[in-house]
Design a protein around this nucleic acid. Structure first.
Lengths: 69, 69
DNA sequence: ACTTTATGTAAAATATAATTGACTTATATT
DNA sequence: AATATAAGTCAATTATATTTTACATAAAGT
């Protein structure tokens, strides 16, 4: 799995640290770090929570048109 | 959590039974049933697999503009 | 140099997604 | 009425997402 740079970019754009984002969506900093690192398969509800906090949609952060996994 | 009627609708439109869809994304029929029923929190990779098989995007099936959980 | 803040990473424990096996109901077909 | 297919549900187990605790590194500020 590839890094989620779109998520990192959206987080930085919102001026949030990994820890601050983690607090907002009620997970640990390590979970956010792992998701951005890309070697994780988070639940859809967590993805949705993250998107809402960052003001984007699921497609913006987690959908790739050409995705071979 | 509410039923995922959009997913059920997209599945029917593709002429797939719960079991057929389950086979295509390598999970059990019960998992598909539970997701459609709504009392589940599937992983993002499974959601993406389902979307690809049904020819839709994450936003189409799993994103609601006004979602209070 | 020292401290602080943000990030990266890892091993062990806990919570929960997903499986397995089984039973039920509904609908359609013969 | 009897059979077959699809769907709904449940209890117990297994796989894995997430937590907890901990240590390491880099950059920035004092």
């Amino acid at each position: 799995m590839a890094k989620n740079l779109k998520m990192k970019s959206a987080r930085v754009l919102n001026d949030l640290t990994q820890e601050a984002l983690a607090d907002r969506v009620n997970v640990t900093r390590q979970t956010i770090n792992a998701i951005e690192k890309g070697d994780y398969n988070p639940t859809i509800n967590l993805c949705k929570d993250i998107c809402r906090v960052l003001g984007v949609t699921l497609n913006d952060l987690f959908w790739e048109e050409n995705d071979n996994e």
